[in-house]
Design a protein around this nucleic acid. Structure first.
Lengths: 139, 139
DNA sequence: TCATTTGATGTTACTCTATAACATCTTCGG
DNA sequence: CCGAAGATGTTATAGAGTAACATCAAATGA
């Protein structure tokens, strides 16, 4: 049945995200792919991203409406994202203990957790040392 | 200078959010206010929400693109949100220790945290016991 | 072989979220 | 009164995501 295997386009989008130093929006990816596929539409991008997400190769950044590639080292599990509001870089922090602490906390109040989203905005080491107050923090 | 005091419209939006059992989008609020202010525009809603957010009276739910009122008891600090993907209800869990654990984790990797966003999707006690698998989890 | 089914992909159009840009009004200090 | 500065109104548009339906391609079975 051909199954849900990744095709050339999926891999191309993943490569774009891997090459980027910052999260890319679905429309950034759309623009990037137009060179090779002039008629590609948003729907196709989102379908690829959904596939890649299920495969654990990409992760959505909820607070940026954007997408990042996941380091192949990390397991296909949620990770804590540290998002620099100056340079836009996102670091994926593998802190299983912290994620466990979060799900434990909501479980304690009777909730049944399923999908934790943990994103911390701030400044990365380099930007913090530069202390550039001209940029403002996005949503 | 009139300052950044809350006006009648701000309070009306806050009241809408307090009365709602689920997060409301900016456009839900727009529709709700149109009865009283037929010509109100999205810009005005977002300006009010920004003011209310600064005042600690409302909080944005990043994974839902929606807004909730903050319980007056909680300090004007970030809270952990437990979001039920069945009924849509959002519980604000006051777990300062967990938030501290998250910021500590990213600090350990050299990051300078500023604004943590912690949202856990899953099912509330009631919906979990009903176990309704017909609904699917939104983004 | 050919029809049928089924899932993937293409295509169009749209909804929803959010903000830019500029006009107008208001308030206050002089 | 006059002008500056902030708040608010208004218009238009950008950006994110999806619904609905057409089309295609591979597998299956008569």
């Amino acid at each position: 049945m051909a199954a849900n295997l990744l095709n050339a386009r999926d891999m191309a989008l993943h490569a774009c995200l891997c090459a980027a130093s910052r999260p890319l929006s679905a429309y950034d990816l759309l623009d990037a792919r137009r060179a090779a596929e002039p008629r590609i539409a948003p729907t196709a991008i989102y379908r690829s991203l959904t596939k890649l997400e299920k495969a654990g190769l990409v992760q959505r950044v909820a607070t940026l409406n954007a997408w990042i590639a996941r380091p192949p080292k990390l397991p296909a599990e949620p990770s804590v994202l540290a998002i620099c509001d100056s340079c836009g870089a996102v670091e994926q922090v593998a802190e299983a203990g912290v994620i466990q602490a979060v799900t434990d906390a909501v479980t304690r109040s009777g909730f049944h957790p399923n999908r934790p989203v943990i994103e911390v905005h701030g400044h990365c080491t380099r930007c913090e040392s530069e202390t550039d107050p001209t940029r403002s923090a996005p949503r």
